[in-house]
């Protein structure tokens, strides 16, 4: 039983963790940046000029939150051949996770910016600030406070989502677990360890989120 995690298997798990963290970092960073842009583009007054773009972003958001991440990953991996593109499994999974994460982050950013009272925009304009100045100096600092707890939740979701990459052959922690379980015929032991790895990575996120939220709630009651 103990030798399941010796030598080659341990190396496999170590590399699996690196791939999981790689997918996780790509999804979170790419998703957060794209999501912030989506949130900004969707907020503020709608004009005939930005209306088509907004409609597009609403559809984007519905698609990437309404279609399972697993379907996105499979579609990006196998479907891209139709355009003559052959991404590696990691590339396809990273792209799909980024799209998936960006839709969630975008919704959070949009809702948080919306949560800032409209009068703040008006006040900024009455001071003669430009749109960008209002956004950077007035809106974003307030919206960021609101967005932080749900954003941490989204980060935890992205971490869990990375496990789906194993389905198209990425040897992340779950993929490494699959190989080890087959090799050693000890699936229970192997997958409990795999689960523990995710727990160790994800649990601090959960605690941080809760801490931030409590602080936020405490702040708002004054």
């Amino acid at each position: 039983m103990v030798d399941v995690f010796s030598g080659a298997n341990l190396e496999l798990l170590r590399r699996g963790i690196i791939f999981t963290l790689g997918l996780f970092a790509t999804g979170v960073v790419g998703g957060a940046v794209l999501g912030a842009v989506i949130g900004v583009l969707r907020s503020g007054p709608t004009t005939p000029l930005n209306a088509p773009l907004r409609a597009l972003l609403v559809v984007y958001s519905a698609v990437f939150r309404g279609v399972p991440a697993l379907v996105l990953i499979i579609f990006f991996f196998y479907g891209s051949a139709a355009f003559g593109i052959r991404p590696s499994a990691f590339q396809a999974a990273a792209l799909a996770l980024t799209a998936y994460a960006s839709a969630g982050f975008g919704e959070i950013a949009y809702a948080s910016i919306n949560a800032v009272s409209e009068q703040q925009w008006l006040a900024g304009r009455s001071l003669g600030l430009s749109y960008i100045q209002i956004l950077i100096h007035i809106i974003v600092p307030q919206a960021a406070r609101v967005a932080t707890p749900p954003a941490v939740g989204q980060v935890a979701h992205v971490l869990k989502g990375t496990s789906l990459a194993s389905v198209i052959g990425v040897i992340d922690v779950t993929g490494a677990g699959n190989i080890m379980a087959n090799r050693a015929a000890e699936p229970l032991y192997v997958f409990l360890v795999v689960g523990a790895v995710y727990f160790i990575l994800g649990y601090p996120l959960m605690r941080i989120g809760r801490l931030l939220e409590r602080r936020l709630l405490a702040g708002s009651s004054t």
Binding site: E107, I108, N114, A115, P150, G153, G209, E213, L216, S220
Partner: peptide, 23 residues
Amino acid sequence: HLADGSLDTPTVLLTSPDVPSIR
């Protein structure tokens, strides 16, 4: 989003997340 929200931000929300309620 109130009592436990941060971590439970679902990937699909019925409406946009009702973040004002946090504040």
